[in-house]
Amino acid sequence: MSDEIPTTDNREPALVVTSMIDHVLDLAATWTTWDGRPVRADERVYTPHKAIRRVTDHLIDHLAEVEARLAGDPTIPDRWHASASTTPADLAPFTDQDLNEARSRLTRLSRIWADRLTALTPDQLDRSPGEGWTFRQIAFHLADSAYYADAVGDLSAVGSDR
């Protein structure tokens, strides 16, 4: 993930976010076969639970930012750098129940983001109030959240090398 200004294109911002979530959930559907070994990506490690947690937290953090800026309120910075932390809960097996909860949570967040982004005018998307990236840039930045799920990968081929 990067803090560089996100590159945008002519895709609808809502579709950019919802497509990322669909991709994450497609990968998560293969994670019930996870063998319990964290996957190393760059200088960090990822697990199915950590990937879902990071995607969810990223969506929530930026949603809070967008809503605060639209309301004219100051944003609340995220002071916990959770990608660097792997919790004991992150190391738990990823079960069918976990997959169902991830689907439920991320599907609801997908809907919230789609509703929020489609309610904004092109001017609001590109001249967003307050400091920071435009809301269009934030949507394209959120697409990078797939990184966490991609780090775990497609585990449908049980026993294959990572």
Rank of each mutant, 00 (worst) to 15 (best):
R103I: 09
A149Q: 02
D150L: 13
R116P: 00
D78Q: 14
V55M: 04
A64F: 07
R108H: 13
F135W: 05
A92N: 11
E131M: 11
S160K: 13
L63I: 04
D154F: 08
A89F: 07
T95Y: 06
P48R: 05
L99P: 08
L70Y: 07
R103S: 08
Y147R: 14
A64I: 05
P38Y: 08
D161Y: 06
N100G: 13
H23N: 11
R53G: 02
G132V: 04
D22A: 15
L25T: 08
V66C: 08
Q137Y: 06
V17D: 01
D123M: 06
A146I: 13
T75S: 11
I60G: 06
D35N: 15
T7D: 05
I76E: 12
L120Q: 03
W133C: 01
G36Q: 06
A82R: 12
V55E: 02
D150Q: 15
L109W: 15
D78I: 10
R53Q: 09
L125P: 08
E67R: 15
P48K: 04
D115C: 02
I76R: 13
L106M: 14
T118H: 06
D61V: 14
V158F: 12
W80I: 15
P38Q: 09
T118N: 14
V66N: 00
H62F: 14
A14C: 01
R111E: 14
A68R: 05
L59H: 01
H141G: 14
T33K: 12
E65W: 12
S104C: 10
A114G: 10
R103E: 11
E131I: 09
P93F: 03
T134D: 01
F135I: 14
Q124H: 08
F94I: 09
T18F: 00
F135S: 01
P74I: 05
E67I: 11
Y148M: 05
E67F: 01
K50P: 03
V17P: 01
A146P: 00
L27D: 03
V24E: 00
M20N: 07
A82Y: 11
V24F: 08
L142V: 04
H62M: 12
L25S: 07
